[in-house]
Every structure is written in structure tokens, then in C-alpha cells.
């Protein structure tokens, strides 16, 4: 089996590790009116729509299920969660609501966790310095010639959200880069 196709295996070099996090559920929230939808989001989950190029983290329910809301465009943000509960909560809140919808993208958009002291060295070999978000920011840019939404969890810890069809290509570029690290 061609090891390049095994996209679930972790990649590592001194100062950086890269691994797909299969536990991430991801739904796209789309709304015509950010103000109105933001209120419903706050009602359901306790967090509003993130500011442009930002992300909000929160906890839902008695079980304190962690979730994240990532800004994607003026009419879209993504809800990431390890459990179904936060997703079901917002889904109930907007049921029948004609101004917003929820589109499950779980499995279609994969989350890569990239962390380590040399994370920025790696990211600057995938894309431009301009495209790498600072800690606390989330933005979409061109990495390895494809579109990737990067979330700056900390100065050396990122999530890279990538379309599943491209994950082999992205990991291939990362693998080649780490070989020369």
C-alpha cells in the first residue's frame, strides 16, 4: 500500500507534528442576516458569531462539551465540535427558520492538528506569511496551492481545515517538507 495515501498516519519531524483529528465534527452555518442569526446562536450555545477572521470557543450543556465557532465569510461560520450535542442544539434553534441553514460537512472537511516549536517554519513553506493567522485568528488562505482554513489556537498550535479530496496532496507536501526539515 502506497504510504502516501495513508492520510490518517501522523507526520513528524524535530519541532513539529501533524495529524488528522478524526474526532472533529464540522457543520457549516449559513445566514443572510448575521445580527439575527448571532442572537439565535447565542441563545442556543452561549456564543455569538465570531468577529471577522476570528473564532470563539465555548462549552455546551451540563457535560460542558467543547465547541468552536470559526468565522468563514460574511454569511458563513463553521461549528466544530467533538460531540453531537452542540450541533443538535443550534439545529433545533433554527429549525423552520427561513433565514439560516445548517449544512453538515463532517468528513468532507478534515481537521489537521499542527503543533510544535517549528510550526511556523512549516507553515511558511506551505504558504505566504500573510496567510498564516496569528494566535486567536482564523482565516482562509492558499497553502500547498490549495485553499485551507487555518485556526491559530496558539502561537505554535494550529488547526488546518481542508477539503477531504485534497488531504492527500496537503499531507504529501508536508511530508516532503518535513523530510528536509
Amino acid at each position: 500500500m502506497d504510504e502516501r495515501l495513508d492520510w490518517e498516519a501522523a507526520l513528524a519531524a524535530t519541532g513539529v507534528t501533524v495529524k488528522v483529528d478524526r474526532s472533529v465534527r464540522l457543520v457549516a452555518l449559513r445566514y443572510f442576516d448575521a445580527g439575527g442569526f448571532g442572537e439565535r446562536l447565542r441563545t442556543a450555545l452561549g456564543e455569538g458569531i465570531p468577529a471577522p477572521l476570528g473564532f470563539n470557543r465555548g462549552r455546551y450543556g451540563a457535560a460542558e462539551d467543547p465547541f468552536m465557532l470559526v468565522w468563514r465569510s460574511p454569511t458563513e461560520c463553521w461549528l466544530l465540535s467533538a460531540t453531537a450535542a452542540p450541533i443538535e442544539a443550534i439545529s433545533r434553534e433554527i429549525a423552520g427558520f427561513g433565514d439560516a441553514c445548517l449544512i453538515d460537512q463532517t468528513g468532507g472537511i478534515l481537521a489537521l492538528r499542527v503543533e510544535g516549536s517549528r510550526t511556523l517554519d512549516l507553515l511558511h513553506r506551505l504558504g505566504s506569511v500573510d496567510s498564516v493567522p496569528r494566535a486567536g485568528e482564523a482565516s482562509t488562505g492558499r497553502f500547498a496551492d490549495i485553499s485551507v482554513t487555518a485556526v491559530g489556537l496558539a502561537t505554535t498550535e494550529f488547526l488546518m481545515l481542508v477539503e477531504r479530496g485534497h488531504v492527500v496532496h496537503l499531507l504529501g507536501w508536508i511530508r516532503e517538507t518535513l523530510t528536509d526539515f
Binding site: P52, S73, P74, S128, R142
Partner: peptide, 16 residues
């Protein structure tokens, strides 16, 4: 070029 996206700020032209 470096294009100033109205939302994201300055980015390389090849993102556009």
C-alpha cells in the same frame, strides 16, 4: 502583487 482583500487584508495575488 499583494492585494488588500476587503475582509482579510493583504494577501498574495495568487489567492485571488
Amino acid at each position: 502583487m499583494r492585494i488588500p482583500c476587503i475582509v482579510c487584508g493583504l494577501r498574495d495575488e495568487n489567492e485571488f
